[in-house]
Each structure stands twice: as structure tokens, then as C-alpha cells.
């Protein structure tokens, strides 16, 4: 059965697109059939992070408006044959996205894929609403920083009220993915700890992605970090998170970048 998963956050720049690409690739690497959809109409970037920017012909809005068929707009990844991308439109007005149109596309994708990952735009406007509208699950990307945590709380409220699931009296399964985490700074009390964030948001943790240069390096070359350098700390963290999404139980560790024992011991705040 297909799973529709929205990657959202409210706040911009926390790593939604990076996380969508990395989780999508990790799920595909595990053999799942995956499509990642960019909902950021007018500011598309998932194509760039996935390295498919020169292969975009048709986009999400073309399909919504019936200009193109879904099969014509889907772009197959060059590295993984079971990973596909549905890009956003770069030029068109975002009002062209309709609830009904998105519903139709998601319903069709459900028959073809195991995972449908919706990369939400920042904010709480139409694009973000439509990205989460048909979700079964949500990954809320959060940085250990007050504004990001506040926006995540707001998004959690929307997931619990504005989605089709919520309107039917069901629940969207929510997960927190903490990105740009710096264990050393958290240990020094300069950064909200994992426990602080989870306690405030009262939502289970999917994974902890450490702050790392590998993330930038991967996006520079247009490759999801799990494909670009699978042994790197962020790639291992994303791979673990993807396994948890598939229902496996994987120990929650903060993958470190070859740090000393002391640093690793201090990675979690003492209770």
C-alpha cells in the first residue's frame, strides 16, 4: 500500500528539500518504488538538489491542468531506477495548483509507487497546505533553534486540522527530523537539546541529522547525500531515518564525524 509522506516545517531554510531528496533516495536504495514531488511552485529546487534540472520538460502544474500526462512529467533518476521526480513549475502562478487537481495526481501515483514524498514550500500558505493535504505521514524538519521549533508547532497544529485524514477523524502519523544538529554545542547548553525539542513538540523522533559539510557538497553536485557519500554522518542518519519509516527499529544515535569519545559522550544532554 502506498504511503503519502509530506516533508514540511513552516520555516524556510531548515532542510526540507535536502531531506526529501535524501530520504527519497534512501528509501529507493532499500528497494522501494519512490516518487518525490516538488510543491514549491515558482521556487522549485528539488530538481537541482536531485541533479535533474536539465531534464525537466513538464511539471506538476502541467499535469494538474491536463497539458501533460503524469508519465510525461515524471523524471526517472539516473542512478536509481526506482526513484522518480515530479518537478514544480518555475514560472507559473501558484494559484494554478488546485485541491482537486492535486488529489487526482496523488490518487494516480498511489497506484504506481510505494512512497510519495511531497516536498512542501516554506510558510503556511496554499502551497504548504496542498503539500500536506493528502498526507498519511509527515516528517517535520526542525532545527534546534527557537523560531524553527515554534513554526514546527504551528505546522503540527495544521497537520491535525487541515489534512484530509484529520477531517475524516483520523490522524496523520507525525515524525520530527532534527537537522543541522551540533552535539558539541548542545552539550555546552548553547543549542536546544534533542530532549528539549521533543518535549516541547510532543512528537516522536525520526532521526537526528548532524550539521555537516557533506550536505552542501552533495547539493553542489546535484546528488542526494545518501547517494553522494553513503558513509558520511548525515547519509547514515538519513538512511537510519528511512529504515524507521519502513517500520524497522533502529537505535537512535547521533552519527558523529569521527569525533573523540568525550564528544560522543557529551552528545546527549545529561538528564
Amino acid at each position: 500500500m502506498a504511503n503519502v509522506l509530506v516533508v514540511t516545517s513552516g520555516k524556510g531554510g531548515v532542510g526540507k528539500t535536502t531531506s526529501t531528496a535524501a530520504l527519497g533516495a534512501a528509501l529507493a536504495q532499500a528497494g522501494e518504488r519512490v516518487v518525490v514531488i516538488d510543491f514549491d511552485v515558482g521556487l522549485r529546487n528539488l530538481d537541482l538538489v536531485m541533479g535533474a534540472e536539465r531534464r525537466v520538460v513538464f511539471d506538476l502544474i502541467n499535469v494538474v491542468q491536463g497539458v501533460a500526462k503524469l508519465q510525461q512529467a515524471l523524471i526517472r533518476d539516473k542512478r536509481l531506477e526506482n526513484l522518480w521526480l515530479l518537478p514544480a513549475s518555475q514560472t507559473r502562478d501558484k494559484d494554478a495548483l488546485t485541491d482537486e487537481g492535486v488529489g487526482r495526481i496523488i490518487a494516480e501515483l498511489r497506484t504506481k509507487f510505494d512512497w510519495i514524498l511531497c516536498d512542501s514550500p516554506a510558510g503556511i500558505e496554499r502551497g504548504a497546505m496542498l503539500a500536506m493535504r493528502y498526507a498519511d505521514e509527515a516528517v517535520i524538519v526542525t532545527n534546534p533553534e527557537v523560531s524553527s521549533v515554534r513554526d514546527s508547532d504551528r505546522i503540527i497544529g495544521m497537520l491535525d486540522s487541515k489534512t484530509v485524514k484529520a477531517e475524516q477523524g483520523e490522524r496523520v502519523t507525525k515524525h520530527i527530523l532534527i537537522t543541522r544538529f551540533d552535539p558539541a554545542r548542545a552539550a555546552r547548553g548553547e543549542m536546544l537539546s534533542i530532549d528539549d525539542i521533543l518535549e516541547i513538540l510532543a512528537t516522536p523522533l525520526l532521526g537526528i541529522i548532524p550539521e555537516s559539510q557533506d550536505v552542501l557538497r552533495a547539493s553542489n553536485v546535484g546528488s542526494p547525500v545518501t547517494l553522494n557519500n553513503a558513509a558520511s554522518a548525515p547519509a547514515r542518519a538519513y538512511t537510519d531515518a528511512a529504515r524507521r519509516l519502513m517500520g524497522e527499529s533502529v537505535d537512535m544515535i547521533v552519527p558523529a564525524e569521527r569525533r573523540g569519545l568525550m564528544n560522543r559522550l557529551l552528545g546527549r544532554r545529561a538528564a
Binding site: R150, A187, G189, E190, M191, L192, I200, L266, R269
Partner: peptide
């Protein structure tokens, strides 16, 4: 514990507890 010890050494006050409370 570890946080308190570190704070003792570098003399700076941890700001994370303030962030948590404000949030």
C-alpha cells in the same frame, strides 16, 4: 551534569534553558 561542568570552565551562561522556557 556535563553541561554544568563545562559552564564552570568556559564561564559562559548556557542559553538553551532560556530558549526552552521562552518556547
Amino acid at each position: 551534569m556535563s553541561m554544568n561542568l563545562l559552564r564552570l570552565f568556559n564561564g559562559r551562561k548556557a542559553s538553551a534553558p532560556v530558549a526552552r522556557e521562552r518556547l
